[in-house]
Write a protein that binds this DNA or RNA. Structure first.
Lengths: 251, 251
DNA sequence: CGTCGGTTTGATCTAGTTCAACCGCCGTGG
DNA sequence: CCACGGCGGTTGAACTAGATCAAACCGACG
């Protein structure tokens, strides 16, 4: 757990955040950036597999994922697990804990990650002095809700094949938006167990379904990662239109 | 559709909002209430079955459900429908549309409803001058996210029986919190088709599952409504602990 | 009295689960 | 250097939760 965490001394000033170059993030005012820089307490690095935030935790802090992959999940007493959504660079982590006071889900890293750590105590200051940023946080919360809506539709009403294709296309698009699919092929660092727990299916059936997608040359499976070969093809199978066009804020 | 809507002349001042008496809502400062009162443009009444907000709509307004029942849903091209969540008095309606600019789900009323209508344009003013209320809106967005998390867990990982029991217990608790189960028995105004579309099951199987719950004297079905006979029993079947204790804001 | 929306029930079918075994790869320890 | 064990993926066979099909029922309402 926490042994896998280490604070990083070097502190990238938010003005030079590598993510901000990306045109998918809305441009920020200099004073907004300045505040975010003071809001940011430091950086944190964690290894794949370690878990930082767990259900029921009260001392939750607020983070932005700077690099790496993660996922949110909940589980039942007997171990059945449901992955709720994936977290990619630029995503806020731990908002529920900061706003409501208690995390009701857990988060686990899929790769080594770097997080910007924010001071939860200064959230009220942010709301007070930077209404634009406060609105951005609400915007991000609404975005998360929208993604969950779509995931719920998928798990509730799509067939296994559609679900799998949708999931991979969805992750692909999100990754592409944050520049993870620049020219070079994209490898999504998940196992088939993760896919199963996201889709609400058994591993065996998930394997057979992914097999079919592989046979159709839409994806290729590499050990613990999924390579996307034909994203439009996946969307076609899923009957899904793709993400909208909006520029998102980056806190 | 919109013919079923009618503006109501009489305008209850927010200071006398019938919901505010309920101890489950956090108390508001007089100046907050005053602002909400100016934020509120009027009231709207709509009949059961009519649909006000639909997917893709851009002109979305922001509402608070004052009385009545509603639900949010999404559907696929071929008609498969997934109900995402239910809306009860005190819930915010149309936040996604107000914040992101486009509704990506639809809303339908289950009973005659009364809505407080807010001016979407003054949302920036709210964020600017009333950081506490802005925080409340974020709080409500997080709460919705939390409910979706739980619903997703349910649809993805619980059995039909567990899902059905969870759903009804969940709605029951929410209704109880807003005073809809005061002594007298509570009738949830939904059809089995709604239940099916919430649980991601077929109607036939939903019917058989509800039948079992009826046989166990946990619920009773009345035409287009569900009566809850034994809420702890339902939670037991579902393996669900119930909602937490938090006081919620009321915008 | 007929029709319509919603519920009920039985029969049959199938998508997805469970069980079980096996494979290939990689990291570890003897 | 090799044997071993564990993790992740693969495959087939048997099974079942839930889907689909079809028909009837029942109360409300015009």
């Amino acid at each position: 757990m926490s042994e896998a965490l280490s604070a990083i001394a070097r502190r990238v000033p938010c003005e030079m955040c590598p993510l901000r170059g990306n045109p998918n993030f809305r441009p920020f005012m200099p004073e907004e950036l300045k505040f975010i820089s003071t809001f940011k307490r430091g950086e944190l690095a964690a290894d794949a597999g370690s878990m930082i935030l767990s259900e029921g935790s009260h001392s939750a802090q607020l983070f932005t994922l700077l690099s790496g992959w993660a996922f949110r999940y909940k589980s039942l007493e007997d171990g059945r697990r449901q992955i709720l959504n994936y977290l990619l660079p630029g995503d806020l982590v731990g908002l529920q804990g900061s706003v409501i006071g208690e995390m009701q889900h857990s988060v686990e890293w899929l790769s080594p990650v770097i997080l910007c750590v924010f001071q939860r105590d200064s959230l009220p200051t942010l709301f007070k002095n930077h209404p634009g940023l406060a609105f951005d946080i609400t915007w991000l919360a609404s975005r998360e809700e929208r993604m969950l809506d779509e995931n719920l539709l998928s798990v509730g009403r799509r067939s296994a094949m559609e679900r799998a294709a949708y999931l991979i296309a969805f992750i692909y698009q999100r990754a592409a938006r944050v520049g993870l699919a620049q020219g070079k092929r994209l490898l999504i660092p998940i196992s088939q167990q993760h896919v199963a727990d996201t889709l609400g299916l058994s591993i065996v059936h998930t394997n057979k379904t992914l097999r079919k997608l592989s046979d159709r040359k839409l994806i290729r499976w590499h050990g613990r990662a999924c390579e996307v070969l034909d994203e439009p093809g996946l969307r076609e199978v899923a009957g899904w239109d793709g993400l909208g066009e909006d520029k998102r804020p980056l806190i």
